[in-house]
């Protein structure tokens, strides 16, 4: 579904992305992990055609993303940036509706789609409330609903759980998992590796702009990879209800 070929992105001191090669199929929640500056956000922005790569290309279902007209691109994918602060104090329903501005829908279809996403994101009760009256978690859900409302094939989220308390982090990830189960490809930058391991079907590990590993969380979060990408070691505890870990710095070497 998503195919990234030899993707590079120039940077000021060093390339932000170097020859990234990645194939991802639909229907899964994929976590983009890596240390700060590893290139996670840059990769999402290149996929969303917000940044122009210095080499390589991104294809969705065989079509090069940059060859699509902006309106077509908006039908295929949606992007949720890390820090989004709505400037005007509009209602939740009006915010979510912004995601449909370039979708050619009848009034009825539009209402149905809005209703569907508001229900899925547990926002029906809040639909007529101004954004200023929502908590941080509720506002993040509303922003996520805006990205989801157009039912894009590819949903790109840049740290959707940042600055949320643990309950809202879990709710958000469950929501993204549901989207993936309905056939979308959901690609998320994530910092919390235990949540990434628990909720994501696959992880993509980046290190200094290069792709280090792609695969199931257990494969990607190996001791060697954790040491290389994050400079840490960890003990993992897994049972049927989830994953927990204790990260520690690597022992000092002489």
């Amino acid at each position: 579904m998503l195919s990234i070929q030899q993707l590079s992105l120039a940077g000021i001191r060093r390339p932000r992305l170097q020859q990234v090669q990645l194939q991802l199929s639909a229907g899964q929640l994929v976590g983009l992990v890596g240390a700060n500056g590893a290139g996670k956000s840059s990769l999402l922005q290149v996929i969303a055609a917000l940044l122009t790569p210095s080499a390589g290309e991104v294809r969705i279902d065989g079509t090069v993303v940059t060859s699509l007209a902006p309106e077509q691109r908006a039908q295929v994918m949606a992007y949720l940036p890390q820090y989004e602060q709505p400037q005007w104090d509009i209602k939740v329903r009006e915010l979510v509706d912004i995601g449909l501005l370039h979708h050619r829908l009848s009034r009825r279809q539009r209402q149905l789609q809005l209703q569907h996403v508001l229900t899925a994101c547990d926002l029906l009760q809040l639909a007529e409330r101004p954004l200023s009256t929502l908590s941080g978690g509720e506002r993040q859900r509303a922003l996520l609903a805006r990205a989801m409302v157009g039912q894009p094939k590819l949903l790109l989220c840049d740290e959707p759980t940042a600055a949320l308390d643990i309950q809202h982090q879990l709710q958000t990830l469950q929501l993204l998992q549901q989207q993936a189960r309905q056939g979308q490809l959901v690609l998320c930058c994530m910092h919390d590796l235990s949540l990434a391991a628990r909720y994501c079907d696959q992880l993509v590990l980046l290190h200094e702009g290069r792709l280090l590993e792609v695969g199931a969380p257990a494969t990607v979060l190996s001791d060697a990879h954790l040491a290389t990408a994050f400079g840490i070691q960890a003990q993992w505890y897994c049972d049927s209800s989830g994953v927990a870990w204790i990260p520690q710095p690597l022992p000092a070497t002489d």
Partner: peptide
């Protein structure tokens, strides 16, 4: 007019909403 509505959100987001910015 629709661009002005969309600009409730950041320019980065608006650039992905299908506008010829």
């Amino acid at each position: 007019r629709t661009l002005l509505t969309a600009l409730t959100l950041s320019e980065q987001t608006v650039a992905t909403l299908g506008f010829r910015l």
